[in-house]
Design a protein around this nucleic acid. Sequence first.
DNA 1: GCCAACGTTGGC
DNA 2: GCCAACGTTGGC
Length: 151
Amino acid sequence: MKHWLMKSEPDAFSIVDLERVGTEPWTGVRNYQARNYMKQMRVGDGVLFYHSSCAVPGVVGIAEVATEAFPDPTQFQKKSPYFDPKSTPEEPRWWCVDVRFVRRFAEPVTLAALRGEDRLEGLALLQRGSRLSVIPVANGHWKTILALAGG
DNA sequence: GCCAACGTTGGC
DNA sequence: GCCAACGTTGGC
């Protein structure tokens, strides 16, 4: 089983929102590398839910992959901000997965805390200039972050 | 294929 | 709001 980290701006969709709805299609990813990672996802993979572009960025809880990748429906919706006129149903360009809530951390593991942890060296999130919204997380890094969250 | 211009991300 | 970093676009 693989592990991932997925970013969301809490103003748009937070861990509280995910807890309320239970399962959410992760639509709107328009970056090829992030898309390719989602295509690699398998049902049951663990996901670190990360709040970005907010007062205290950090990992706020855990989710899991609930479906294999499927074509992101928003790419075909003309009124959607994620509409892509170059995409066709026969050859979809963008894919998404369903993400299911697992649990919320009692206290977020802040970006500052992540940066202060030697054992997280190499975590793509912490690399200079990294803006990917879907990131693979090594097994050891996953365990370390869960430990920082209190187990 | 190169590269300048532009738009976006995201921490601070 | 600022700005560094990055991805994409499009002219040539």
